[in-house]
Write a protein that binds this DNA or RNA. Structure first.
Lengths: 236, 236
DNA sequence: TTGATAAATTGTACATGTACAATTATAATA
DNA sequence: TATTATAATTGTACATGTACAATTTATCAA
């Protein structure tokens, strides 16, 4: 683990231990540097990481303060950076509906930048959050990049397997979101009615080297999923 | 404008001028440093900015490459960083439904960290994108921070006014999203039917010093709004 | 008191330099 | 030719140091 990531984790622990709340002030930058025994660069990067993660905010001339979202029960859609301790407080389960190795379907080719001959793992599964149906996920993995998958892996966390067992470096992703009415085919899986509202998120995942390896379409159950996003930039 | 922001803008211009496409390689870091005559720190920060913005991706040992989303017609929900050139390619118009100065409503107090006595500007407006109804926006600005607003300003970009005329420094925001069925009252404004699907986004905007100044609830028209998010971290 | 002004505090921008890890290209070997 | 080992390329991590801008605190005048 990198030093600045490690430092960031330690600062989080510090916040936890001292039970700091929204708006509370952390020690001054110089003090943090001495306290955690790192250089200014490292501390700055650690703080920047925590700022993007939404844990703190920094005010020049004033100090470093804790930023906490108070609402509970929301899913972090884009951790935008950092670790993956998003959903740890939620209990996530999966039920595999289908799992097969097929030639890349026509409509997926463009998204994955693949060829019609190329084989892909096609997986359909329902994901549960705290024993409620959260979403239906249909995903396609290029076998050229993910040479092997099996049903057992797919029942657990696929990304976990890709990173640890296969040593793949997962990089960035493009997500496309829209809201619409559920078609009957999907509604059944979510135990909802056709015409009910749904959030659909298409995502193209890339390795750090830019190669797309996974295209997935997730349809969320509108009653069991709500999302929080901590943003830092500007907007509308 | 800061040097690294300026540099980032110049690199974007470079990409534009050379008509670089997805996956095309930029000059090597050292070359970029010489070419744009900045230090390594500055260039690194500029590139980091562009990476977060989704314009490029960097691969150690390999190079710096262009990253472009090819789908058109999507709204950038969270620019996650950077400038606010999101919606420039869209034509955004507003129609003000109501505009008043009132004591802070009960249900808003907690979100804005205000008191019941405090006065807030309450604004309701419909926003159009390319002449289609995009969303209904209800927003509340604390008068303690935004001392003056009028109907004319509200018909244009409020944030533009806050930044330039009032000199406020807009910082981070917390967004809460969920999907649901439209109540009749809102459906009418969006020219939809009660029960139709809708994406609702609540946002609490803060100044850079951490003080919340704006709480808004936006209900999007499901047929006229779709969103793209370029993420960099990890996920589900 | 109030209000302006100066000084101290504190985070950010930027430069320079070293070491290193991931990738790619090259050379050596079977 | 294919495979492996080596070297060159290229971005990232990290340290140190200077200058500065935004904020807060202290000081002084009215």
């Amino acid at each position: 683990m990198l030093k600045y990531q490690q430092t960031a984790t330690e600062i989080e622990a510090y916040i936890e231990q001292h039970a700091l709340q929204q708006g509370d002030k952390l020690p001054v930058l110089d003090q943090l540097i001495r306290q955690f025994e790192v250089s200014k660069t490292t501390m700055t990067k650690a703080l920047e990481l925590l700022e993007r993660k939404g844990t703190i905010f920094q005010v020049r001339g004033s100090g470093i303060f804790v930023r906490k979202t108070n609402r509970k029960g929301y899913i972090e859609l884009f951790s935008t950076q950092g670790f993956k301790q998003n959903l740890v407080e939620h209990d996530i389960q999966s039920k595999v509906l289908s799992f097969e190795l097929i030639p890349c379907p026509e409509e997926i080719i463009e998204n994955l930048g693949s060829t019609p001959e190329e084989m892909v793992y096609a997986i359909k599964r329902i994901r549960y959050i705290n024993d409620n149906i959260m979403c239906l996920e249909e995903s396609y993995y290029r076998q050229a990049i993910v040479p092997y998958l099996n049903r057992e892996i797919v029942e657990q966390s696929i990304f976990e397997y890709l990173e640890t067992a296969l040593g793949l470096n997962i990089g960035f992703s493009d997500m496309y979101m829209h809201v619409g009415k559920l078609p009957d085919s999907i509604a059944q899986h979510l135990e909802l009615k056709a015409g009910d509202p749904a959030l659909t998120v298409e995502t193209i995942f890339h390795l750090t080297n830019g190669r797309p390896f996974d295209y997935s379409v997730i349809t969320y159950h509108y009653e069991h999923s709500q999302f929080v996003v901590q943003a830092n930039g500007l907007y509308l």
